[in-house]
Nucleic acid binder design. Sequence first.
RNA 1: CGGGGCGUAGCUCAGCCUGGCUAGAGCGCCAGCUUUGGGAGCUGGAAGUCGCAGGUUCGAAUCCUGUCGCCCCGACCA
Length: 581
Amino acid sequence: MRWTQTLIPTMKEDPSDAEIPSHRLMLRAGLIRQLMAGAYTYLPLGYRALRKAEAIVREEMERAGAVEVFMPALQPIELFERTGRKSAFGNVLINFLVARGDRKVHMALGPTHEEVVTDLVAHHISSYRQLPLTLYQIQTKFRNEERPRFGVLRTSEFLMKDAYSFHSSLAQLEETYRKMYEAYCRIFARCGLDYVAVEAESGPIGGDASHEFMVPAGNGEDSIVRCANCTYGANLERAETGRKTLLPTPPKEAAPLKTVSTPKVTTIEQVAKLLKIRPDQMIKTLIYVADEQPIAVLIRGDHEANENKVRRALSAGEIKLADEQTILKVTGAPVGFAGPVGLKCDIIADHDVPLIENAVAGANAADAHVTGVTFGRDYNLKATFDLRNAGDGDPCPKCGNRLELVHGIEVGHVFKLGTKYSISLNATYLDEKEQRNPIIMGCYGIGVNRIIASLAETSHDANGLIWPLAVAPYEVLVVTLNATDAETTKVAEQYVKDLEAAGVDVLYDDRDVRPGVKFKDADLVGIPLRIVIGGKGLQQGQVEIKWRTADAPEIAPVKDGARHALRMLAAKKDEQGRLVG
RNA sequence: CGGGGCGUAGCUCAGCCUGGCUAGAGCGCCAGCUUUGGGAGCUGGAAGUCGCAGGUUCGAAUCCUGUCGCCCCGACCA
């Protein structure tokens, strides 16, 4: 493709609206343009990259035994009503009434396709003999994001690969889940992404029923925890710490328990400021209601309670923060003055709580706190639990090494769904014993745009994008130094022809502009291999071939340059193929 | 949905506080000449409903009110 025949509107200056690297570079390199908040046009370069990623996803899905379908983006609202997701999605679900004759048809733009695919399968699968089955599609999804942001990372319209598997047993689901997990690893590795597979909240099935594939990036919206030493990784909701119960014996010379007046001072920060102490010297006492029973949850003042962990520790079905009346009943005080000493309900505490010496807590009386709170003397616990969010420096639950907290971009998610949708949409099969059972499902999503955005976000330098060969819009950029010189043009065109004949994607910068402009654009756009033709080099019978990431070019004779480039590409592909395995 | 910021040429921005001449600059674009290995120089040129609506005023890009759009922080994110 000739540069002069396509549309690559590069920008010399940073657009003022774009703050994070991926957004800025995708705009500057002419990959995308914004239409409105949360909706972007993919220009030729951006769309080529997107399609390369899509092709890799498709190949690996097929390899894993999934079969492709294409379902409508337009969906009847009834399906979402049947699964209860019309209200679960709320405003996120784009839906509207359409006039049809004298009727109004209520439809939605698909935010995902569990309903549609389950409905399809409900009509066409009836026997265990037809299972397992995995269907997938690559299609535009619509979600009315409350706040689209970060360029292409969070939009209201996006390209997603979604796969759904159907099974007659949990073992069968397990098998497909494993295949999908492996396919995802291959996909992200082939795309050249540095990714982490982390455990995620698993919902009704429990266990290791859900993994997210995250690309570590400072601007990522999700917080994940990973071990610097072993393979352990989890999102913040899920991440465990390797801490153990440590119940200290009360020191002999502990400070006395003392009540101090703290009128209208209710938050950790306010109390810490008033008493001139640090938040980590305080005990945060949260009153929850777990399956109708009030329970006090103790957390160190500077930590955050993790409700999922609290729920699991209590083996409760549902927990929520208590209302004011419950708090008044249990603590005898309004909100903000709860503490472990003399509390009229059960107490559950995080591992770090009893270790706080001379702690400060609410006094269970209005406008008062107590100081000198000492474990074993003023309150007691039989055991402690992991109840707070994991953080930097916590021990790894697998190997005991240090965990680190990093931000990440979620590019994929695999999930064992169970029978939620098959039950509500009546998707059943008949087993060997002629018993009717709901089909067991799994679902597997990949944000294709996010693959591209994550690469832009993490793979660039001061001069521009750096594409991995597999996803680059073009593999080779042929640059002429003087587009008006007949000899230069002749050589360049022969190169383009030879490389294209060998199956290489070539962009030919044939613009009649100064070399400096071409070099700057070449770096900005980030095509992996650059071949420069013209100038002194050509006079000496040479061309320059340079990786985007290399400091200096390789020099090849004009006659051999195309073959030389092909050898370089082949070597690189080999190297990357070995990484995927 | 709460908080903050910004809308002036294709892009980046000045002008606004303190109203007043024909609304400016750099980059980009067009023409010509020169130049040709890291975003060239000179000359000439085209290009703006100053987001939109209303108000105040002799006079509004500038002041006031409303409204729309975009960005950022937070809440939310099956």
